[in-house]
Simulated assay, not measured.
Amino acid sequence: MDWRLLEHAKDAQDTATALSTFLGEIPEYSKEIKGDIAELFAISSALDVLHEDLELSRYGRYAGRILRDLEICLPSLDYTLEDIRNIFNRSKRKGQQHPGAFPGTPPYAQIWEDACDEMRAQGIPLSARLEMYRTYLQGLHDILRR
């Protein structure tokens, strides 16, 4: 069964690493950003664990129990990771339109606030989304083990 779990795990990890760029630029949001980074690494870890679980013969036979759940969760996670990556595209685009403290510096705080507002308007704030994915993936691991 190939659900590309390791690719999804790497995407979450790469997104967390990229998000760390914002830490030094907008310290007023560092607590929130650090929490989001931690959740992304936890999601990556949960996907790694699920991959291992599904490779093991003792859990592999129970994979059907979580197949439909993965078919829903993984595309949704992809959309969220894409939304986060779009934040970086905005920072590159806006950096030349509205300089920050130094010419060419993107207005990171405004970009972050706009992105968070957009996700809240979609129904779920970023931190809640990431927590939901982590909890969900860990729950799938528990299903396989039980």
Rank of each mutant, 00 (worst) to 15 (best):
L130W: 05
R129Q: 15
G104Q: 07
Q122S: 09
Q122N: 05
A101C: 02
T135K: 11
C116N: 12
P103Q: 07
E118L: 14
P106N: 03
C116A: 07
Y136P: 00
P106Q: 01
G104L: 08
T105N: 12
T105S: 15
R129V: 06
L126C: 06
C116E: 14
Q122A: 12
Q110V: 10
P107T: 04
R134G: 00
A128P: 00
I111K: 00
G104Y: 12
Y108M: 06
P106I: 07
G104I: 08
E113R: 12
I111T: 10
I111G: 04
R134N: 11
A115R: 10
M119T: 05
E118G: 04
R129L: 12
Q122L: 14
W112I: 13
I124V: 15
L126R: 02
L137R: 04
C116P: 00
A128Y: 04
P125Q: 03
L126W: 03
E131S: 13
M119N: 02
E113Q: 15
G123H: 03
E113S: 12
Q122F: 07
P125L: 01
P107A: 02
E113A: 12
P107Y: 05
Y136L: 13
M119P: 00
A109I: 03
E131L: 13
Y108I: 02
P107S: 07
P103T: 00
L126T: 01
L126E: 04
G100P: 09
M132K: 10
W112S: 02
F102P: 00
G100R: 11
A115S: 12
M119D: 08
R129S: 12
L130V: 04
L137N: 01
A115L: 04
M132A: 11
D117Q: 14
E131A: 15
A109W: 00
C116K: 14
E118M: 14
Q122E: 08
F102M: 11
S127R: 13
W112G: 01
A128E: 13
I124D: 09
G104P: 07
Y133F: 15
M119Q: 15
M119C: 00
A115E: 07
C116F: 10
Y108H: 13
G104V: 04
P125I: 01
Y108L: 04
R120P: 00
E118Q: 13
A128G: 04
T135W: 01
Y136E: 15
G123R: 06
E118N: 08
Y108C: 12
D117I: 01
R134S: 10
A121N: 09
E118K: 14
R120T: 09
T105W: 11
P103D: 04
P125R: 02
E113F: 05
G104C: 07
P99C: 11
R129D: 01
P125H: 01
I111D: 03
D114T: 12
R120F: 00
L137D: 06
G100K: 04
G104H: 06
E131I: 03
S127D: 08
A101M: 10
Y136N: 09
G104R: 03
L126D: 02
P106M: 00
I124Q: 15
T135A: 13
Y108W: 15
E113C: 05
S127L: 12
I124Y: 07
S127K: 06
L130S: 01
R120K: 14
G100W: 00
P103R: 10
P107W: 02
I111C: 03
Q110H: 14
D117F: 03
A115C: 09
M119F: 05
T105Q: 14
T105A: 14
A115M: 09
G123P: 08
I124S: 10
A121H: 05
P103H: 03
I111Y: 01
Q122G: 03
